[in-house]
Design a binder for these strands. Structure first.
Length: 212
DNA sequence: GACCAGGCACATC
DNA sequence: GATGTGCATGGT
């Protein structure tokens, strides 16, 4: 029942927007950097920050770790909260180099639950950032919830609008087949709908889901 | 100028 | 456990 309606939503979104080809990044490490930089920030601003970093050298853990504090901050400045985000990226690198030889493959060798806990212990990485890394960088079947996901699901009466992250996540995984590819596309489609039509104001103008 | 954006940590009740 | 606040840039 819930599953049918969710899949109907998915089909309608997919028919409207097509495959989103997420995450918009060239490497798993770039996914991680983008996931931190996009916290409460428009993606267009993150793109500038990532371009700035790439203009210095290919975006790798070693490069990022080698950058002086001020150079890093100035590069990511367009993404906002640059002091905090510089610290968050450094906190991730400290764990990556301290415990996993600076090697993402070594970090990603952990099982999904252990990896999620490991990420959540890093200051600056919360549930959405951790799950984005799990799904889009490590390719694990973990459903990512974000502001748009909750807004779309509540406006279309799947969930109350004050639903917590964990509750929304469980709702999705309880009512969908556990498939990385489905979770990947579905979340990306939520974001696309959210950005285009499901905004705080005006509410739902021209939304392609009106008859859902 | 107000509002919004692919959150999170921390303080406080 | 719920609620409030600071963090910062750039587009609409």
């Amino acid at each position: 029942m819930h599953e049918e309606r969710l899949l109907a939503l998915y089909d309608k979104l997919y028919a409207s927007f097509g495959p989103r080809h997420w995450w918009p990044a060239d490497t798993p490490f770039e996914v991680i950097v983008g996931a931190v930089l996009t916290q409460n920030t428009a993606w267009s601003n993150v793109e500038r920050a990532i371009r700035n970093l790439q203009s210095i050298a290919p975006l790798t853990p070693d490069l990022l770790r080698s950058l002086p504090e001020e150079v890093l901050k100035q590069a990511i400045r367009p993404a906002g909260y640059f002091n905090q985000k510089a610290r968050k990226l450094r906190a991730f690198l400290a764990v990556l180099f301290g415990r996993f030889e600076g090697n993402l493959d070594t970090l990603f060798a952990l099982d999904t639950e252990t990896l999620r806990q490991c990420l959540l212990e890093i200051s600056g990485i919360g549930p959405e950032t951790a799950d984005s890394i799990l799904l889009y960088a490590a390719k694990r079947p973990v459903f990512v919830i974000d502001r748009y996901t909750i807004r779309v699901l509540s406006r279309h009466a799947f969930l109350p609008e004050d639903t917590s992250y964990a509750e929304a996540q469980r709702y999705m995984t309880d009512h969908l087949p556990e498939e990385t590819g489905l979770y990947n596309e579905f979340h990306a489609l939520f974001v696309e709908l959210g950005k285009r039509y499901c905004r705080p104001r005006p509410l739902c103008s021209g939304c392609p889901l009106e008859d859902l």
